[in-house]
Design a protein around this nucleic acid. Structure first.
Lengths: 152, 152
DNA sequence: GCATAATAGTTACATATGAAACTAGTTGAT
DNA sequence: ATCAACTAGTTTCATATGTAACTATTATGC
């Protein structure tokens, strides 16, 4: 028997718990829009970020979605090919390009958002409004703490 | 301006929040053991599951870690090559094989566990003991709800 | 008993991902 | 002005991952 102070109880280990929950939720949500609209998770995230905050540069999108710039670059390329996203090179700084949803992109976005919100609402039926606020507040603090630990 | 009832505020959208938090934590933890011990996340998860619950079949590991059986099969193959995991075919049912850590595997496990627990402890300094319990209870309920929504 | 279906696990293939190298453009120092 | 350093974004390459097909073994229906 190992020292109890050093036993790793996987089922109570916070990183493991977070990972399992997030993956289940993310996969369930993906199942809702992947079939009808043929978007990957990364593509949908880019669209969601643009739907909420456009115009954004690719770097802005990466920061917002916590994806790396390579993933964003590829998702944007695919979305532009499908005519869902438009790019305009910045006049001042020609390295930059601002992105936004096209009319078609906005239409698709408008069809997915209700599905996403409905899923979230059904998920959150597990909690009261106050519990939801509490969960959000606690997870905010965990996130801030994790960032501080990573960045030093 | 879209109908407020249909606006997706990414930063308040629970699946997004969970995903971002889990990824940050998982990555931070991985950074602790990947360098010194050269394990992938999946490999470490298999070792952690075996360290806690061995003997397990590959299917058991998959269920415990919420990984698919292909990922487990590959991780186990790599871990056996490094002599960290042992496999024994079941006499009753020769399709099955039970897995457990080898002596070397237990030694490695014993070195990683304190790192993992220390990271968790530092992360959880963001919360009081009671808040931690509250967070665990709420996330349990979200998880149960997500599973019910997925499985029908 | 024998064909069929089911299960444990692996392999093959196609796709997704991340790190690092690369291109193009801008800033700053001399 | 010129060269080095920096930044935005893309491409390349090596790995990781998931789906589906496959092997081997056991269970089931007739």
């Amino acid at each position: 028997m190992p020292n109890p102070a050093q036993a790793l109880e996987l089922e109570n280990f916070l990183p493991y718990r977070l990972s399992v929950l997030a993956q289940l939720v993310s996969q369930s949500l993906h199942d809702l829009y992947a079939g009808p609209f043929d978007l990957s998770v990364t593509q949908w995230r880019v669209m969601a970020a643009l739907g909420r905050f456009a115009p954004l540069t690719a770097s802005d999108v990466a920061q917002r979605t916590v994806m790396d710039k390579v993933a964003v670059s590829r998702a944007v390329a695919a979305l532009m090919q499908r005519g869902l996203v438009e790019r305009a090179t910045d006049r001042q700084d020609r390295r930059r390009a601002t992105l936004r949803l096209s009319a078609r992109g906005r239409a698709l976005h408008g069809r997915i958002v209700p599905l996403a919100l409905e899923y979230e609402a059904r998920l959150c039926q597990a909690l009261s409004a106050e519990e939801r606020r509490s969960f959000d507040a606690l997870s905010d603090r965990l996130f801030a703490r994790a960032k501080r630990l990573r960045d030093g």
